[in-house]
Amino acid sequence: MSILVLAEHHDGQLSSATAHVVAAAKQIGGDIHVLVAGQGVSAVAEAAAQLDGVAKVRVADHAVYAHQLAEPLGDLLVALADDYGHVLACSSTTGKNVLPRLAALKDVGQLSEIIAVESADTFRRPIYAGNAIATVQSEDALKVITVRATAFDAVGETGSASVEAVATVVDNTRSTFIKEALAESDRPELGSARVVISGGRGMGNGENFTLLEAIADKLGAAIGASRAAVDAGFVPNDMQVGQTGKIVAPDLYIAVGISGAIQHLAGMKDSKVIVAINKDEEAPIFQVADYGLVADLFQALPELEQKL
């Protein structure tokens, strides 16, 4: 059976997460089709056609799919799903918003945020904030799955899939897009950055995050934060790394002034190398850190910046 991957895209650009989801689809095995739904998405479709392993890109380009609202996107997926054995999406806010609608409308269960493919019907996924890993087998004819992008390596971009239009247009009278307020950033996207430096409550206030910015600029890193730092109002909540924020798995994760609560660890403990800088040597973060520095961050950070 074929596999349908729902493309993730923003502002006319294909999100890098899609290449990771295609990698998961390749492990399942079968023809891989990518669905690009939105308005004015021809560039996204072309980018998706270049992903290795993709056989076909299906493009639903219509005003009703603009902003990828759950109601029309769910109905579109329902209309297309009969051709497929699996429907996959990234476990982003878009994937999480839409896929359960498809599953319910097709009367099948959904597997959320898989981190490994064991076979075409058996997958591994974290439960209890990543403190246990469940191996689950779906007995449904259609498998609806969201994929944790950081758990799969991205496929290359040397493919040349065919692109075809999807004629299906659905109605949507139930929801209307009003506005979006996106945080602006020149730095790499948190979810896909190779290096992430995060600050916690120990940063003291929002202004002190400039100490992290100087280092982030030298390392080409994205900046994250713990829930404590977000709740204290230091930084906006889209910077939050954790069970209730973003899940990251960079090559290098630097945790500064972060104690290491369960909810934060769930978002970053699959990073390759973890560095903790904290003045409390009993902080739980040191139990997962490869390199720990017990120091006052206000001295350590400027010194680190200078020595990079």
Binding site: G109, T122, A132, I133, Q137, D140, D290
Partner: peptide, 16 residues
Amino acid sequence: RVKLLKVEPPAERQAG
């Protein structure tokens, strides 16, 4: 609809 085959603790990180 989903069979739970196995639950394991996550891989432990090596002490740093």
